[in-house]
Design a protein around this nucleic acid. Structure first.
Length: 757
DNA sequence: GTTCTAGAAC
DNA sequence: GTTCTAGAAC
């Protein structure tokens, strides 16, 4: 058993130490539920010390809690301290329970404020909005004082949970602790996502050359010449963050609201509002006069179709030339200044600092839809957090100039919680900057057309959000998926498919109908080097359906080339059939690691697989199994797993057949490990089942999976880095988690099956 | 996918 | 000082 314990736990006594787990979290964060789950399935004796109920069902004192915990420890039991414990001072006496015989752990349930509020409202019964508001205020105030625990406070282990899946893993970790087991010490989970975001904003603010003092940058100031938003002006001029209507009264002046008006059951009494930056006039150096003409023209066209919805052009500085140009031209055209106005402020802080509630903001994006690059794009991605990046990826991988894509914002995004933004619309405008991709070389005929298209796409996107929200009962914003409808009156009469969410799928399905006939062996005569030049690159031409295809770098083509012309790669190939080729992975991540590659043109990855490929999946699995069994015949101590990467790096659908020793010098980093040992790795048996019943396989997002903490695939212990993990797995002989032992996810030698099963 | 390397972490 | 990670380039 000692062999299985992580080396950080060396020197422990033979009997597992009792643990005191101090839970930390706002009301409604799920502390009690956490305890219940662990206590239900743990083989260790646990005692839950809850201040709310300690005095025979009623709230008691901290001293009573301590006493109760001490008694439980004397009996050799483990203890949960179930109270908020958000401040260091509140928890330090409990930390002192630790010592040579007792470890003190922290489990932080750092879940979105909105979620805690809605849960605590539910728990306190069916009270009115006032009560709901009070719960919001209580949670709010507690979270202001939150001090995240540090190891230096005396904790042996801290587990920080930011979402439900983190919570579940923590529950699993504690539930699975047998009487002799220990959990590795250290800090687990993301430490302080907020800090990163703030930094991003600060960088952005410093980068901008706004001549005004820092004060006028950080506080948004309504643009006095044009804005007609008297109520917002009032809040803003007080210099306090404006508070959402439901929770506001309970908060002191000057406190930052944690929940924006998007929280829970908020009414939609605010008019839907789109805040947008001027597209293409900053980094893309588009002429300001021409751009302002186009903005006003497009606004004039849309503003009356939008019902009570509002459009707001935002820039950072009072001296913004584009704002003053647009303002002048808008008033010349008599555009209703209640429905369209300009606003000076940071587009990522319009509500918290400017008092202006905008449920949708537009981003002047780059064609890759990636963060960075400075300016508005960097600021919005930074403020939106990883949730925005992930949500963006789900909608599109890239975007052509003149197009827009609507991204529903997950409720965990800071932009949603703090600013009440429910959607971000990415827009790519024409580029006149020779330093940037797709420069139009001063071709303003094309440039103006593309900029017009960009604004049309943007406003149509916003319009469709407004329409779909109008249909929904209030309060259900977060479930909103922007269902885009084709514009009936596109100026060019050209149907635009850039905003639709389904075009890629259609394209894919279209591809597969003809896939059998397109299937080719020796399809190309060129050498693989020549075929690299264009194959798989993102289509940047102005083709209407080219706006979102996955791009494959030249290095990602190797499997495709082998699958198409295996006879040219005889030395690399282990087996060739009509459907598949089998080869050794060039950089094996374990003692045995082969790939079963499909030989079908157009089948790049698991995302491309539909029911038509079910038979192919079965063939691939059978071939993979055959090779695993062959290897097991040579070495019966091996264990194999067959599966696909959710988002492979190499083009051409391929099944990994990999032994579970992970004994390889090529396994070098976190990505390598997590790509085979998180849900990012999709077991072949599950994929076949999903495709058979649900038409397609479930895919896991690369960004969330591949950055997860490093855990042993057998005993699930966590390790700080790759070298430590590798030294652990060479010795760990714990049996595999039960999920892997089911459904034939693991392939073992016949004699081993009976032992482990 | 890997390699290279700056700089963070230890 | 060395070890390790993560991002850019390929």
């Amino acid at each position: 058993m000692d062999m299985d314990i992580d080396e950080t736990a060396k020197g422990e006594e033979k009997h597992g130490k009792p643990i005191v787990v101090i839970l930390m979290g706002a009301p409604g964060s799920g502390k009690s539920t956490f305890c219940e789950h662990v206590m239900r399935s743990s083989t260790r004796p646990w005692v839950r010390v809850c201040q709310d109920t300690i005095k025979s069902g009623k709230a008691g004192t901290k001293a009573q809690c301590i006493e109760s915990a001490v008694n439980a420890l004397k009996d050799g039991k483990c203890v949960f301290i179930d109270r908020c414990n958000l401040e260091k001072e509140q928890r330090n006496e409990f930390v002192k329970l630790g010592g040579p015989q007792v470890d003190v752990h922290a489990v932080v349930l750092d879940l979105p404020a909105k979620l805690c509020i809605s849960r605590s409202v539910k728990r306190t019964g069916h009270e009115g909005n006032l009560q709901g508001g009070r719960a919001a205020a209580v949670v709010n105030r507690m979270l202001q004082k939150k001090e995240l625990p540090k190891l230096s406070e005396g904790f042996a282990r801290i587990t920080s949970c930011q979402n439900e899946s983190d919570v579940q893993s923590a529950i699993d970790a504690y539930s699975g602790l047998g009487p002799l087991d220990t959990l590795p010490n250290g800090y687990f989970g993301q430490k302080n996502p907020g800090a990163k975001i703030q930094l991003g904003i600060m960088k952005f603010l410093k980068k901008t050359d706004a001549p005004a003092s820092s004060e006028s940058i950080s506080k948004c100031i309504p643009d006095s010449n044009a804005s007609q938003i008297t109520e917002e002006k009032d809040t803003c001029s007080k210099g306090t963050g404006s508070l959402s209507e439901n929770a506001g009264r309970e908060l002191k002046e000057g406190e930052e609201p944690v929940v924006g008006s998007a929280g829970g059951d908020v009414s939609l009494k605010d008019a839907p509002t789109l805040a947008f930056p001027s597209i293409s006039t900053a980094d893309f150096q588009f002429d300001l006069e021409k751009a302002s003409d186009i903005i006003v023209e497009k606004v004039a066209k849309f503003v009356n179709k939008l019902g009570n919805a509002r459009l707001v052009l935002v820039d950072l500085s009072h001296k913004s030339k584009i704002l003053s140009l647009v303002r002048t031209k808008a008033s010349e055209k008599n555009i209703d200044s209640n429905k369209f106005f300009t606003f000076v402020g940071d587009i990522t802080r319009l509500h918290s600092e400017g008092g202006l509630h905008c449920n949708v903001i537009a981003n002047a994006a780059n064609w890759r839809l990636k963060p960075g690059g400075g300016g508005v794009n960097a600021a919005i991605f930074s403020a939106g957090g990883q949730a925005l990046e992930v949500a963006t990826k789900e909608q599109a991988k890239s975007l052509l100039p003149g197009n827009a894509v609507v991204v529903p914002l997950p409720s965990i995004s800071p932009l949603f919680c703090r600013e009440g933004v429910t959607h971000v619309i990415h827009v790519v405008g024409p580029n006149m900057n020779p330093q940037r991709p797709n420069c139009l070389n001063n071709d303003y005929i094309k440039g103006c057309r593309v900029l017009q298209e960009a604004y049309t796409s943007l406003f149509e996107g916003f319009s469709s959000i407004v329409r779909s929200q109008a249909k929904l009962p209030k309060g259900s914003i977060e479930n909103l998926q922007s269902k885009m409808t084709e514009s009936q009156d596109h100026p060019d009469g050209v149907p635009k498919d850039h905003i639709t969410n389904s075009d890629q799928k259609n394209k894919r399905e279209g591809l597969h109908k003809s896939e059998r006939s397109k299937r080719s062996k020796g399809y190309r005569d060129e050498t693989e080097d020549a075929s690299d030049s264009n194959a798989g690159k993102v289509n940047l031409s102005n083709k209407s359906d080219g706006s979102r295809t996955k791009s494959w770098g030249s290095w990602a083509q190797a499997l495709y080339n082998i699958a198409m012309q295996p006879e040219k790669h005889r030395d690399a190939v282990l087996e060739i059939s009509d459907d598949v080729v089998v080869l050794n992975d060039l950089y094996p991540k374990a003692q045995r690691h082969v790939l079963v590659v499909a030989r079908y043109e157009g089948l790049d990855c698991l995302a491309d697989v539909r029911k038509e490929q079910l038979q192919l999946l079965r063939t691939m699995h059978a071939v993979g199994l055959k090779w695993a069994e062959k290897f097991l015949h040579d070495d019966s101590s091996l264990v194999f797993r067959l599966g696909y990467h959710s988002e492979p790096s190499m083009r051409q659908l391929h099944l990994h057949v990999i032994s579970q020793d992970f004994d390889s010098t090529h396994l070098k980093n976190k990505k390598h490990w997590n790509s085979f040992n998180t849900a990012f790795f999709r077991d072949s048996v599950d994929v076949m089942e999903e495709v058979s019943s649900d038409e397609k396989a479930i895919l896991k997002d690369e960004d969330s999976m591949l950055s997860m903490e490093l855990r042993c695939h057998r005993c699930r212990s966590a390790h700080p880095n790759i070298p430590r993990l590798k030294s652990h797995i060479t010795n760990c002989r714990a049996s595999f988690p039960s999920t892997l032992l089911q459904k034939g996810r693991l392939v073992l030698a016949p004699c081993n099956v009976s032992i482990d099963a």
